[in-house]
Design a protein around this nucleic acid. Sequence first.
DNA 1: CAGTAAATACCTAAATCTAGGTATTTCATT
DNA 2: AATGAAATACCTAGATTTAGGTATTTACTG
Lengths: 209, 209
Amino acid sequence: MIRIFVVDDHQVVIDGISSIFAEVEEIKIIGSALNGVEALRKLETESPDVLLLDINMPEMDGIQLVRELKKQGRELKILILTMHNNPQFTKQLIAEGVQGCVLKNAGKKDLIYAISEINNGGRYYTDAVEETLKESLDKTQEAINQVQLTKREVEIVKLIALEHTTNEIAEKLSISAYTVDTHRKNIINKLGVKNLAGLVRFAFEKGLL
Amino acid sequence: MIRIFVVDDHQVVIDGISSIFAEVEEIKIIGSALNGVEALRKLETESPDVLLLDINMPEMDGIQLVRELKKQGRELKILILTMHNNPQFTKQLIAEGVQGCVLKNAGKKDLIYAISEINNGGRYYTDAVEETLKESLDKTQEAINQVQLTKREVEIVKLIALEHTTNEIAEKLSISAYTVDTHRKNIINKLGVKNLAGLVRFAFEKGLL
DNA sequence: CAGTAAATACCTAAATCTAGGTATTTCATT
DNA sequence: AATGAAATACCTAGATTTAGGTATTTACTG
């Protein structure tokens, strides 16, 4: 019997996954959470074999949660559920030591297979994920290091994505436009993107919007 | 007995929803599709009471599918399943005549309630959706009309979102930078967004990336 | 207490985007 | 053959972003 804990910010997905496994003998859902913070709290008292984790979440995203759990020295296997097949993320995830990754457009069968594989000490990456990964493996290696935006930076990313100009943001936050400029520059550097478009794209991929 | 057809590009969501309703007496899933094109084909022979439809899909998105079905004069109720609570979309959807809209972070209970409401001739919008809608209802009304980008425009939107500048795009497509400029302007006008950031956001919401 | 991360602010020059136009060619449809 | 949409191209002025810096204050952490 494999004991699973599901973390996903969409209740429908949690309910769905629960229902899928309700009819599967060897797998049992022992709990779920709608975000990273809730997951951490609940995992204090629960100890699943496999953690089924969504990447794109508000509050604390999947990667942060993985880090926190590793930091606590938890011995559990992690299977990532992701929307976008983004090599940037996948690389980061592997670096963080997760055991597998399936796209949300995978089917029930794949999901069950991935979970058993992982529970038996294996690894599982959807074909598509693996392929995209290989393609981009030779590219910028330093991009792997942790991209962590500060609270203020996240705030500014959101405002930019919502079409506010530097001046508007400055006024809204009651700070100098120069400061907003500086933040924007820092963000672009941190994310390794080229311009505003990349920044907005990131905001989406990261689930900030 | 309410007969449902599910359209969502994520197999996990389809499987999940199927499982959820497997244990609900009055609701039955009679079919599903992973994209608009497949849905249209399958709906030629199927006639569900309610269509459960994801907005963000590749190939043919939810709105396009709704239009096509209305054009065919199909008599069916449509419940939208959406990720983002975007008033722009909601307005468009209402204009297209859909019966309801639930966010993907709604739970099983809400989903079931929404479906029965709609099947009984009612309408159902998640509280959050309704609220966001009201807030933005006084804003630009003309934005409701169909936003349809041409092939070339879509191409350019993608390149912009991928962080290419006007000059780079011009070179890549072997056209003048002036032309790219014109396209960008037209796109910004069509979408009713303010700047490049809005354009990239749109690309994501529309599922272009 | 020393060190560091975060947030703040300033400066300049160059690149890029935005807004307001006008105008021609191509292609498909009526 | 005419209409209209799509794609193309050009022009100018002003706004905004980008790249390269430097520097101060605050707050937490070892």
